[in-house]
Design a protein around this nucleic acid. Structure first.
Lengths: 144, 144
DNA sequence: ATTTGCACTTGCAATATGCAAGCAAATTTA
DNA sequence: TAAATTTGCTTGCATATTGCAAGTGCAAAT
């Protein structure tokens, strides 16, 4: 995950070079579904990512244009992370992972129900949430 | 990747414990799209996986019920690997990764065209290929 | 003025990866 | 039928990545 080089020209391989590790998609999940947006928010997630790994992943995701850093409205010590449109477009992938996991893992009933609900009209759900997330981007423009 | 423990109860986290690394999905891709089915087939893929890593990934994927080992019809020295239904059901995830990569990477025109074609009627494409792959399973039953 | 919160960095031990070589069993070749 | 080759690994070892704990610098709160 610390390297730059592309292993092949395969689209899947290239994608995995961006988010194919044990942590990146969890950070993206937190941004996408759980309104987490600061370094400490991510640190506090149930999986317990190590602080140096978190820093390295945030750097990588930013470099790859999946997330971006903004000054936080509340304080100068805080930094606000958010998904770019490129990051938001990962939603369908993550949804399909949820759908797969719902079929093959034992999950708490409430989570199972939520996934089944979203699965019923996948495209609608994806479009709706994508729209919401992208709309939020226009409220506060990037500093870059 | 050598470990067993679940990091959390999150469906996404659990899924990443199964295929969230730089190699597993590439092996699955080879099984799914490129008719690769033996150890040497995977070794020869463009990305150049190391032999010990390949062995470890195959073991992991088998343990997690994503692939299975069969005796090869051609020879007793050969082993035939194939996707289980659980592995085949990863298709929609992989398709969405392809679709994402088509939007954000520069890809060869022919690959781009193929992805766009599949995207046009995603569900149909997925159902069709899933059916084909699952049908093949019935031709030769598992030895397990 | 001091403590606290936030976003990291640093050091170091443990683990995972990548590379090359080796190995046993089955098959092919000479 | 003996030797070479193929196949699917394992082993050893150097390097890279991870995980954990502690530390740092700046802003804000007390």
């Amino acid at each position: 995950m610390e390297t730059n080089k592309k292993r092949s020209d395969c689209p899947l391989g290239c994608s995995l070079d961006v988010f194919g590790d044990k942590w990146s998609l969890l950070i993206i999940r937190d941004l996408m579904f759980f309104q987490k947006s600061t370094y400490n928010d991510f640190l506090k997630s149930a999986e317990g990512i190590a602080t140096n790994i978190l820093a390295s992943r945030l750097k990588g995701l930013e470099k790859n244009g999946v997330i971006e850093k903004l000054e936080h409205p509340d304080s100068k010590t805080k930094i606000l992370y958010r998904l770019t449109p490129k990051g938001i477009d990962l939603l369908p992938i993550i949804m399909e992972v949820y759908i797969w996991s719902e079929k093959y893992f034992n999950l708490p009933a409430d989570i199972k129900a939520t996934i089944k609900e979203a699965k019923k009209d996948k495209d609608k759900f994806a479009k709706q949430l994508t729209k919401e997330l992208k709309n939020k981007l226009n409220e506060k423009k990037s500093s870059a």
